[in-house]
Design a protein around this nucleic acid. Sequence first.
DNA 1: AAACTATGTCGTAAGTTTGCGTCATACTTC
DNA 2: GAAGTATGACGCAAACTTACGACATAGTTT
Lengths: 116, 116
Amino acid sequence: MTYAKTTAFTDEQQQLARVAKALAHPARVAIIQFLASQKTCISGDIAAELPLARTTVSQHLQELKALDLIRGEIDGLTVCYCLNTELLRQVHQQFTAFFLEATAGEACGPGEACEC
Amino acid sequence: MTYAKTTAFTDEQQQLARVAKALAHPARVAIIQFLASQKTCISGDIAAELPLARTTVSQHLQELKALDLIRGEIDGLTVCYCLNTELLRQVHQQFTAFFLEATAGEACGPGEACEC
DNA sequence: AAACTATGTCGTAAGTTTGCGTCATACTTC
DNA sequence: GAAGTATGACGCAAACTTACGACATAGTTT
């Protein structure tokens, strides 16, 4: 990789790829699921739930925060993370649009050959 | 990374992360979109459409093929790639389930603080 | 203010991804 | 069968990711 030629792809493609990358690690998927399962948005307990060192989890949290998928509110000593459901809904829409586009045509099925 | 502690995450989380990783590069998103836009599943023309060297595109294609998201049929000299719409539909379902789970609760909105 | 706790930042090491040129393979066509 | 074309495999270099310990910061408690 001399340099990433990201300029040549559409904003749409880059945006989708960026979010996909955020979900491209089991730990981050787990973090989002964990936050969703808690009514109150627990803070560093997240680290205790994962098989990773506290600092590593913190790093994953920063990554999700950088995309604004989660928010962190400082509450005295602890920090309180919670999902940005608003954004997640938008992202869901984006993914759905992409998948619908991709699955619209009837390409080659499980065994069928494509007719090139 | 001494080693990836993937064992500690659920199969579901790992599967989602694996697919997300496949979509985590604009080139691969573009490839899927391009294949979806073609009625016939064109082969190496894909390389011509992207701002990348032919071998690099081939590499991305192999990556998508490894997850079975696309299929390749050899037709004499050329190879004919096409989307595995069946699988893509399943993946779409998986993502939808994930996003619905994540957006179910009413966490902290745009400006609202969460009540920890 | 000293001890303690919850967090993030930094630096580092190992692993993975990306991009690309060169080469090998396999089919076509002359 | 020799020249030509479409592809994938291989190997390398640069960049990025992941994981984590040591340290810094900031609020709590005593």
